[in-house]
Design a binder for these strands. Structure first.
Length: 150
DNA sequence: GCCAACGTTGGC
DNA sequence: GCCAACGTTGGC
């Protein structure tokens, strides 16, 4: 089982939205590195759910991958913000997995608090200038965060 | 609102 | 294939 982190702006799609929906197609990611990580996800993998541009920016919950990545339908939809004119049904560019809600933490794990945790010193999320919206999380980092989570 | 960091685009 | 210009991300 691999472990990951999904970033989202809560004003766009929050942990509460996912709790309501139960399952969602993680569509709209338009970055090749993030896409490649999503294409390597397997059902049963777990993901941390992170709110960016939030107060505070924080890890707020846990999700699970329930279906491996398939073509992101929004790339074919001209009216979508995520439309990609260079993508075709025969050769899709963008793929995304289905994820399901597992838990919302009682207390968000704020970015500034995570920076104080020595075991997380090398975590991608905490790196200066880190913008990747889908990231791998190491087993050690994941277990450290799950111990902090309530 | 600022701005550093980073990815993408496109001219050459 | 280089790289300057530009747009976006996202913490602060």
């Amino acid at each position: 089982m691999a472990t990951w982190l999904f970033k989202t702006e809560p004003s766009t799609y929050s942990i509460d939205d996912l709790a309501r929906d139960g399952v969602t197609h993680w569509h709209g990611v338009r970055n090749y590195q993030a896409r490649n990580f999503m294409m390597s996800m397997e059902p049963g993998d777990q993901g941390l759910f992170y709110h960016s541009s939030a107060e505070p920016p924080a890890i707020v919950g846990l999700v699970e991958i329930i279906h491996k990545a398939k073509p992101d339908p929004s790339q074919f939809e001209p009216s979508s913000d995520y439309y990609d004119p260079k993508a075709t049904k025969e050769k899709p560019r963008w793929f995304c997995p289905d994820i399901k809600f597992v838990a919302k933490f009682k207390e968000p794990l704020g970015l500034s608090d995570l920076r104080d945790v020595a075991a997380l010193a090398d975590m991608e999320l905490l790196k200066r200038g880190s913008r990747l919206s889908v990231q791998p999380v190491s087993p050690k980092e994941f277990s450290t965060i799950m111990k902090l989570a309530r």
